[in-house]
Write a protein that binds this DNA or RNA. Structure first.
Lengths: 232, 232
DNA sequence: ACAAAAGTGTTAGGCCTACACCCATGA
DNA sequence: TCATGGGTGTAGGCCTAACACTTTTGT
């Protein structure tokens, strides 16, 4: 690599590398994704995932977190890599390889950040036409989310700290696009033994007042350390 | 992007993009991976996965297939993307983002290609020290292989067309690193109803002669089209 | 002779599914 | 008063795991 008139020069052409972030949220009924309206060409006016070009001194993971924070003021604990998208024509300007990530957040966490850009949540079944190959990225991310939910209790990242069994069930139903019997669902979840009952609901509480639970993260981390695989 | 003295110049530094191929084979007892001995620095003399730099006019998938063929004469039907590796210092020469792929092949398929390069199969538990961050790539690929085997009957790509239940069981045991009861394993596999019994084993065949099976790919493809998920 | 591989069937326990009625609340 | 959401328990079916003996062949 040589520098030349403040340019970075290479013997062979190099693609650009970018990241895209698929951020999932749950509004109590539907899975939502966070999109940004593009202010510049190409695809000006269309919606796209937050993301941007990777700097030479950062990893793709760092890039994704930085771009997400810049564009949406969202700080996400953990983003997981989906995969790289590298079709030749996926960006009309130049050759861009994009490494896509996905993360789950509590919807309320981002409400304050919406002013940072034209960022907006869309229910996953009402997503508008997307820029670039982001439709495809969304499809693959959704499918990965679904698979992952069957093996790891990631759903709790989408709910408030304290939640009811009904909320949890609606979340699972929204992601997996199925419906469960209420009683069987509760039995199955409780059998995992990863929920802590929260507060002290009196025995004589009126039935309309639901039990509250929180996720037992410590216990889950311990199980994971021991390499135990759980399955929903 | 400008050309300058046959150089490709950009306003910002661009990383190189490369691919690496983790090729799994099964020798009847162990899972093996195909490695290439590096003939040049860096890491000269160490072993690494086949792979190389992506050209500007090909996708990562095309690049992986091309590099694999060039270095090992292997033609693989289908490679699946593992993920991109992008840590800043992963290549000492320059910034390289590598997109890793994995594939499963029948071991015999490659015996003729070994002369194409210093390519060699290594049992997965006797892999030598690897160049770059390929140890990590191997760990992630192995773990992905294991997960995938639980959901899709990918194991058959590693066996001959026609195989015995014992071979299939050894394969599952090698990948998942567990052991199964012979009778329960056969029941579980046969219940998937994806095996065709091959040839006509006479009823009075000596017990030492095992039944032969082949994978019913047509039926599996049909199930997959219908979106039925099977689980082992 | 012995070790290795393959054929064969049963049982008990756990898990999953389906399913009905009551109570409290808010519209 | 009606719809909604939540609390609760059981019975049947399916799957899984555990488990032993016999035959044949190669060493």
């Amino acid at each position: 690599m040589e520098e030349n008139k403040n340019m970075y020069c290479y013997k062979y052409p190099h693609p650009s590398v970018a990241t895209d972030c698929v951020i999932f949220g749950f509004d109590g009924n539907d899975i939502n994704v966070l999109l940004i309206e593009r202010g510049i060409e190409p695809f000006k006016g269309l919606w796209a995932f937050p993301g941007g070009f990777m700097r030479i001194d950062e990893s793709a993971e760092q890039c994704a977190a930085r771009e997400l924070a810049e564009e949406t003021s969202l700080e996400v604990k953990y983003m997981e890599q989906l995969k790289a998208f590298s079709a030749v024509g996926r960006d009309p300007r130049e050759r861009v390889v994009s490494i896509a990530f996905y993360a789950l957040v509590r919807l309320k966490d981002v409400q304050g950040g919406d002013d940072a850009a034209r960022a907006q949540w869309f229910p996953i079944h009402s997503v508008p036409g997307l820029a670039f190959d982001h439709d495809r990225i969304l499809r693959e991310a959704t499918s990965r989310l679904r698979e992952k939910l069957c093996f790891e209790p990631i759903g709790f990242d989408l709910l408030p700290e304290v939640f009811t069994m009904g909320q949890l069930q609606r979340l699972y139903e929204a992601i997996l696009d199925v419906s469960f019997d209420r009683r069987n669902f509760a039995k199955k979840i409780l059998k995992l033994d990863l929920l802590i009952e929260e507060g002290n609901r009196p025995d004589n509480a009126p039935t309309r007042i639901p039990r509250m639970y929180r996720f037992n993260k410590e216990k889950y981390d311990e199980l994971k350390r021991k390499g135990i695989k759980l399955e929903f």
